[in-house]
Design a protein around this nucleic acid. Structure first.
Lengths: 133, 133
DNA sequence: CTAGTTGCAAAGAGTTTGCATGGCG
DNA sequence: CGCCATGCAAACTCTTTGCAACTAG
């Protein structure tokens, strides 16, 4: 049995509303307003939602924190994500391209990629043009 | 001026000898033998080597630790790495395949991938067959 | 009512830092 | 000999856990 507490709802809704960004526990706590949720409730709910497969847990290079992202397993399982190291946004790779990458890698190395859980790191178009200005 | 202390040499050599695996600070400390290096020297040297571009710093999903890997920028810059989530080994993707991935993603999304720093996560052939047994 | 959740505070785990000592060049 | 690096211990940051109070169903 799982109760729908105010805190859990707030947390999940916040992540759902920003499906293309990763947040660490601190950012989530701040976004929900500090007086509405305690840090331990943040962590406990994140752990619970993760084991339910509703959110994904990742790490960002060079950071000590763990990041979380809403993960719609239905719509995410068929593509690869592109993660922008500068702005933290997540982009979705076109399906045809993702398929060809998966096929190539599996044939070449026997390496099995789970598309829904694969992320390629780089710099997005916006951050690129911004830095050129 | 940088001194070549015994500790720094041991650390770098250890990573050089295992170019295809990631290690956390604890593993490195243990591998070098605890009485030859202190934990703080491990961290300080890792930070120094990283800023020199001699090693790479990464994170492993679901782990609080930070991982380090020897990074030969000369030989690594032209390919994408495949990281096995189960055994922690790193595989090198064939250049032709890496090129086509980079080209596809850049044309589709304007997303810029730095090949030397890109890692795709999955499960390698060995771990796959092992789990089937 | 009662089992699941919360908030708080304390404990853990990994990493960083200050300082006196030691060693490379 | 002078500066850099080391070892130790303490400080920090992020996360987890124990416990009593609270609340959804």
């Amino acid at each position: 049995m799982v109760y729908n507490t105010e805190q859990r709802t707030l947390l999940l809704n916040f992540l759902k509303e920003h499906p293309d960004t990763m947040f660490c526990a601190k950012q989530i706590e701040a976004a929900i307003q500090k007086d509405c949720i305690s840090r331990s409730a943040v962590y406990r709910n994140l752990a619970e939602l993760e084991s339910d497969g509703k959110i994904k847990r990742c790490s960002k290079a060079g950071s000590r924190e763990v990041y979380y992202q809403y993960f719609d397993s239905q719509s995410c399982k068929n593509h690869i994500h592109l993660f922008c190291k500068q702005c933290g946004k997540i982009f979705h790779m076109e399906n045809k391209i993702a398929d060809s990458i998966v096929n190539n890698v599996e044939q070449d190395n026997g390496f099995e990629i789970n598309k829904g859980e694969t992320t390629i790191y780089g710099v997005c178009r916006d951050c690129n043009t911004r830095s050129i200005k």
